[in-house]
Amino acid sequence: MKGRWLSIGLYSALALTLLAPMVVAALWSLVDPKGGWFAPDIVPRAISLHHWQAIGLDRSLLNSIGLSVVISLAVTALSGLLALPTAYALAKIPFRAKRAIEMFILAPLIVPGLIVGIGIGYLFFRVGLAYSVPGVILAQTIGTLPFMIRILSATLEAIPADLIFAARSLGATPFKVGLHIVAPLAWPGFIAGGMLTFVSSFEEFEKTFIVGAPQVETLTVKLWAVLGGKVMIFPNAAVVTFIVLVPTVLIFFLAERAMRNDGALAAGMGKL
């Protein structure tokens, strides 16, 4: 019962935030350049795959897709690696300054990406990280880390301390406890955090643009280039938009399936 309502909610959100723009983008990407698409018409006069073909022939787009995937994977891995010890400390070690530290870590969540980007951009320029892939990975990680830490620490906090003590008294070393108890109970949170990180990295623009452009051309930077040249090539932009949205849609779909089928993963998703 609960699963069904969750599904309905998710699909409504999906329709509003993704489907509507996607339909428009789809139509734009299919406009036949000979016919065009003008004001009173609800759909274009003629449909063609012209723009998809043109973009498909463009090697630089394929390069951008590859680069975006690699960068997002790296950002996800790096965020996970950096977030885990912090999240563990936040979840398990009761220290007085805990709230203050939490605030500090989560601050980037409420500061606009552009502001953070400008700060980082200046700093990275000074230390020679500007216009490089590692620079972009680092810049994006600064943005995704707070999410990852939040999700992981919520996941770890949900594991009862008695389980860990029970395992210890049964003869498990702290390492074995991590392996046999914490990891299996925490993986849904890790997956949820990983998917969210991947998507937000894949769609990140401000920091990537400031630190990496024009040398590092991810999909979103490419989209900007298509949109922001001397003439705006709307249909081409629509094609790129479509590709940028693919992982988001995929993950929405996966999340919905998870809520329906797997209690543990749904719990992880709940922490998003």
């Binding site: 029970a166 395992a167 210890r168 008294s169």
Partner: peptide
């Protein structure tokens, strides 16, 4: 360390490992 004491402990909350079957819980130690 607790793992070196060889003391059996039953918690008020039972603290069974939720992702393991009954047999695997008992086999853990």
């Amino acid at each position: 360390m607790p793992e070196r004491r060889h003391v059996g402990l039953v918690f008020q909350s039972y603290a069974l490992f939720p992702h393991m079957s009954v047999a695997r819980n008992v086999a853990f130690g």
